Amino acid sequence: MAGITAWRRAAERRGPYVARAVAELRSWPALVVSDTRRGVAFAVSGTEILRTTGAVEVRVRLTAPAIDRLEPYLRECDQVQACSDRAWVAVQVDAEPDLELLLALASVAIKAHVP
């Protein structure tokens, strides 16, 4: 008789700053948290605005108009990269200042998506 093998998906590995960001963002009352197959996602007013995408990366949906307003500042920041979808940016979070930047951008994203 062949045995049955149960596969358990390994817990997503996140860097310490991304893990801290996720813990902090879980406490924000405006955000709804989803633990998805690809990582943790956060939504506001039914729209996903943040998602973890790697050990040190979080994607933030700022909207194209918000990105256009912040572009002079974001251009100077090596930790923020444009995504193919113009509404999103990828934030590399591997130090304390990056965590603070991510939380600030999360606040901008919330404001951009609340009616």
Rank of each mutant, 00 (worst) to 15 (best):
R59S: 09
V60R: 04
R51F: 01
V56E: 09
E12L: 13
R59A: 05
T53Q: 05
I49Q: 00
T52A: 06
G39A: 08
R20T: 12
Y17K: 09
R13W: 01
W28L: 09
R38C: 00
R61Q: 06
S45P: 00
F42E: 00
L25I: 09
A6E: 15
V58I: 10
S45T: 06
I49E: 00
L31S: 06
E57M: 01
I49T: 04
R61F: 01
S45V: 07
V33S: 11
A43P: 01
R9Q: 14
E12G: 10
L25E: 07
L62S: 02
T36H: 08
E24L: 12
V18T: 07
E57P: 00
V44W: 04
R26F: 09
V56K: 03
E24G: 12
T47C: 08
V58M: 01
G54K: 02
V60K: 04
G46Q: 07
F42R: 01
T53I: 02
R37H: 09
G3W: 12
L50T: 01
T5D: 14
F42D: 00
G54Q: 02
L62G: 02
R59V: 09
A23T: 13
A64W: 00
G39K: 06
A2H: 11
A21R: 13
A64L: 07
F42A: 03
R14I: 10
R59T: 08
L25P: 11
I4A: 14
W7Q: 13
R14A: 11
A2M: 12
V56G: 02
R26I: 09
R9T: 13
P65N: 07
I67V: 15
R8G: 07
Y17W: 15
S45A: 15
E57C: 04
P16E: 15
R59N: 10
T36R: 12
E24P: 07
V44I: 11
Y17D: 11
A10K: 04
G15R: 10
I67L: 12
E48Q: 14
V44M: 08
L25S: 01
L62K: 02
L31A: 03
V18C: 08
R37V: 04
L62P: 02
Y17P: 09
R20E: 14
S45I: 01
S34K: 13
A64H: 03
V32K: 10
S27H: 15
R8D: 09
G54V: 07
I49W: 03
R37C: 01
T53K: 04
A41Y: 00
A6L: 15
